[in-house]
């Protein structure tokens, strides 16, 4: 039996940031409707909180127009008994916030601004998650709750993206920046992609940060996937064999036409990526050097160098 003190410093405490995709256009066309999807997630969040008393769960909604924190287990009052209710108080809190968020997100919608692709603001919610991590480290000694926060600091934070909508290549730069800052602060990004094809962004995010990328074959068994693969804390991952993706889609978006390309030209100065040979780099304006743009295969180069 572990004593209370050792439990406090135990390594298997985790802070889980869940990025929940609430893109209405995706969910209205998904095989797994949102009403069936949410119970899986709620059950998963509950089980995370049950795994360790010091575990913390934060949920960020990734909307179409905005992102927002909708749930934080540490600030959850958790008051009142669950008797006579159809669900635990924390779930109803979460749902309440989620509903408010969806309404706000819809209000932000400008009529006619929607065109073609309907991707969520993944870059925004990733940044929010990373900011939360930073905030915890900074606010550690400022605030009174020493013990509780100590446990959180001992944690290892992890981000789980529950994403359904397709990649928005226009977010390529922002997402890559988030990925690299996550890599720097050693925060793994796990991703569970519910869409029909694979998400190149999430594959790269998980690959670079050392997280797990998974595309459930059986959407109805989502909870099983979540609890088997993503419920593991970082300490335990050292001993576990988690699924590895066989291939990673390393394709980048070109800066000129936002096309996803597997081969292109790179500006020799600022490393901007273009799908066609240009006379002048549109990012840094280098005129002369663009004649020596390189043709490169991104995937191959990375595979060789990593």
């Amino acid at each position: 039996m572990a004593s209370a003190a050792s439990k406090l410093y135990a390594d298997d405490v985790s802070l889980l940031m869940v990025l929940l995709d609430t893109n209405p256009f995706f969910w209205s066309s998904s095989n797994l409707p949102f009403s069936k999807f949410l119970p899986h997630v709620l059950a998963f969040l509950n089980s995370i909180l049950l795994l360790n008393q010091l575990n913390q769960v934060v949920v960020i909604a990734t909307g179409y127009n905005s992102c927002s924190y909708i749930y934080d287990s540490s600030s959850d009052s958790n008051q009142g008994s669950d008797h006579g209710r159809i669900m635990p108080a924390r779930c109803s809190n979460l749902l309440q916030k989620l509903e408010e968020f969806v309404i706000k997100d819809e209000q932000l919608f400008k009529e006619g601004s929607r065109e073609g692709i309907s991707s969520s603001l993944l870059s925004g919610s990733l940044s929010m998650a990373l900011c939360f991590d930073e905030q915890i480290y900074r606010g550690f000694f400022d605030q009174g709750h020493f013990i509780l926060n100590l446990a959180v600091t001992m944690h290892a934070m992890q981000i789980l993206c529950l994403q359904g909508s397709s990649d928005g290549p226009e977010q390529y730069v922002a997402i890559m920046n988030s990925i690299f800052s996550a890599q720097r602060s050693m925060v793994p990004i796990d991703s569970c992609y519910m869409g029909s094809s694979n998400s190149a962004f999430l594959q790269q995010a998980s690959y670079i940060t050392g997280g797990v990328y998974l595309k459930p074959q059986q959407p109805n068994g989502l909870f099983q996937y979540l609890s088997t693969v993503f419920a593991t804390d970082l300490h335990s991952r050292a001993f576990l064999q988690l699924p590895k993706s066989l291939g990673v889609d390393f394709r980048a978006s070109c800066f000129c036409h936002k096309k996803t390309i597997d081969m292109g030209y790179i500006c020799s100065v600022c490393l901007s990526i273009f799908c066609k040979h240009h006379k002048k780099c549109s990012t840094c304006g280098v005129l002369k050097l663009l004649s020596v743009l390189y043709a490169l295969c991104f995937g191959w180069v990375r595979r060789i160098t990593t």
Binding site: T22, P24, W27, S28, P33, F34, S35, L38, P39, L42, A43, R85, I86, M87, C91, S92, L95, L98, E99, V102, I103, D105, E106, F109
Partner: peptide, 16 residues
């Protein structure tokens, strides 16, 4: 958006 809100309220009413 309507269908999304609908599904949220559906869970609320049915529960887990």
């Amino acid at each position: 958006y309507g269908s999304l809100r609908e599904s949220i309220s559906k869970i609320k009413s049915i529960g887990l």
